[in-house]
Design a protein around this nucleic acid. Sequence first.
DNA 1: CTCTCTGCAAAATGTTTGCACACTC
DNA 2: GAGTGTGCAAACATTTTGCAGAGAG
Lengths: 151, 151
Amino acid sequence: MKENHKWEKKLASSGFRMTTGRRAIINVLYKNVKHLSAEDIYMVLHPQFPNIGLTTVYRTLELLEQTGIAAKFEFGHGKAKYELTEEYSTKKHHHHLICRNCRTIIDYSDFMEDELTYIAKTESGLSKKYKFLIDNHIINFLGLCSKCRSK
Amino acid sequence: MKENHKWEKKLASSGFRMTTGRRAIINVLYKNVKHLSAEDIYMVLHPQFPNIGLTTVYRTLELLEQTGIAAKFEFGHGKAKYELTEEYSTKKHHHHLICRNCRTIIDYSDFMEDELTYIAKTESGLSKKYKFLIDNHIINFLGLCSKCRSK
DNA sequence: CTCTCTGCAAAATGTTTGCACACTC
DNA sequence: GAGTGTGCAAACATTTTGCAGAGAG
């Protein structure tokens, strides 16, 4: 995991310092595939780093978001969730399938060819019409997962 | 606005009562094009209905969401926002263009032909693969609006 | 007249902030 | 050493809940 230096460089070049806490938090995000809330991260960290407080997790996540290392998601169930952006994670571009009952979130990377065409067309159309500089998009499909369906 | 009866019927048939507060809240959502937070609605209502409390607004919004009359959105800026679903509003299917700087949200209904094809294909593919019963989708484009761009 | 709905105040939840000390560069 | 980063406790903002009374069917 020497690739760590990538985000270390990014932080340094943005004028921030690399500390034990920040490194630990990024590592949790890196090793975990799932979207994590501030508290999730705190819980994972706590056994090994009992001296890292929840405040630091919040502050670090904000920092990571600002520097483009992590992205924040709000799925509508109270807590904000974070994951590393594509540039800093091993995960590829994906979207979400959200169960409105049990709140499970499935990431999918399928059907991206269809998406590419659609997004490209729409994005350029919207950019022109609304003079927006679009740099990202979120697609969520909502419904019931197989378990909740069968009840 | 005699069409009101549509949601009144829906509430009644779901076993809920129609009250002054509920009627007033739905009317605010109906007359306002924009996404409104619980507090927004409370503020609009308060001059004319000073006896409707914020608690009732929250409880009514939850009820409307459960009965499918309104939809809840969390754009990631703290407060949840609501709008009537397509079935109960005059608004047509749309998506969002969100400025990450000033938080302006533009609704757009353009480019829906391209979307239809893409969504239909993806939805059926995802349904099969993940055994999800998909009944809705959200598409948000993120970036900078024209004003924030030029700064 | 019954049972749902409501307002109020209080609690709960998630997140942010002030301050003195600790650690990075 | 200078100045950023941190933990703790307290503050905050939004949303939820308990309860006794009001209003709908």
